[in-house]
Design a protein around this nucleic acid. Structure first.
Lengths: 133, 133
DNA sequence: TATGCTGTTGATAACGAATCTCATTACAGC
DNA sequence: GCTGTAATGAGATTCGTTATCAACAGCATA
């Protein structure tokens, strides 16, 4: 039985995530930490983020460019995101209806172990005004 | 004005896409073509697929592993997919409900110009049996 | 507090997908 | 056929991510 240890590195990653508004890439988070004086290693940041995502302390999603982005979230909740494609502002949205729909659709076609990708990208109110001119 | 030329390579990629049930990666399509005797190059397959996607002759999506997957589709239709993460079998699903939900949620939070990513990954019936024991 | 076991770290190598380079090839119009 | 130029493709390159592995450090115990 493996025992998980607490290290300052994990804490640093957790803190950095918490103090961030939107989604961040592992590399971005790493360079923030480094430029803040932390000697933390890149591999460690990747590992910490992956762990946090598994434990449900962080949400992760793929950017359209293929990067994995992470964001702190309240544990234990499954939710989706409404993301401003201009400024990155993110709103957590609950979607029980979509949840049920995904499950139902999957089993309707004989699929099992279904998970789903549901994210909405748009322009937030502020960016809509700016872009509106 | 650049004139687009027809080459057997583009045709080969289009055919290979058409004769395929589900989503395929560029690399996968390339190695299929190669093992079928075609000397087509990898870069060409990438280019052809990107072109097809732009022209609306192919759907593209990101797999959870970060690969870009492609699939022939009937142009002009907006639909979502139920994809077997093992064998790539794909079922096109209509989701008016989800469509409306996405729009409603977006405008509810002041977001405009919303588009959405909705894909369901799972194991198809056949692959569920294989993976069963 | 010292000791030992073992989970964790981090520099770097390795990997894989995708793109770029550029000399060569071959389509399309004449 | 010729010619201009878009397209090709082998290989190099970029970039995000993961694997390697020796050194380190958390945590339980003596």
């Amino acid at each position: 039985m493996t025992v998980k240890r607490n290290t300052w590195q994990r804490e640093a990653v957790r803190d950095a995530l918490d103090s961030n508004e939107g989604f961040v890439s592992a590399q971005g988070l790493h360079s923030s930490l480094r430029s803040a004086g932390s000697p933390i290693g890149l591999a460690t940041v990747y590992r910490a983020l992956a762990d946090l995502a598994v434990e449900g302390e962080a949400d992760s999603l793929q950017s359209p460019e293929g990067e994995n982005l992470y964001r702190a979230c309240t544990p234990g909740q499954h939710h989706h995101h409404l993301i401003c494609r201009n400024c990155g502002l993110t709103v957590e949205i609950e979607a029980d209806a979509v949840e049920r729909w995904a499950q139902a659709t999957a089993s309707e076609h004989g699929f099992t172990q279904a998970n789903h990708v549901v994210d909405v990208f748009g322009l937030c109110a502020a960016c809509t005004l700016l872009a509106g001119d």
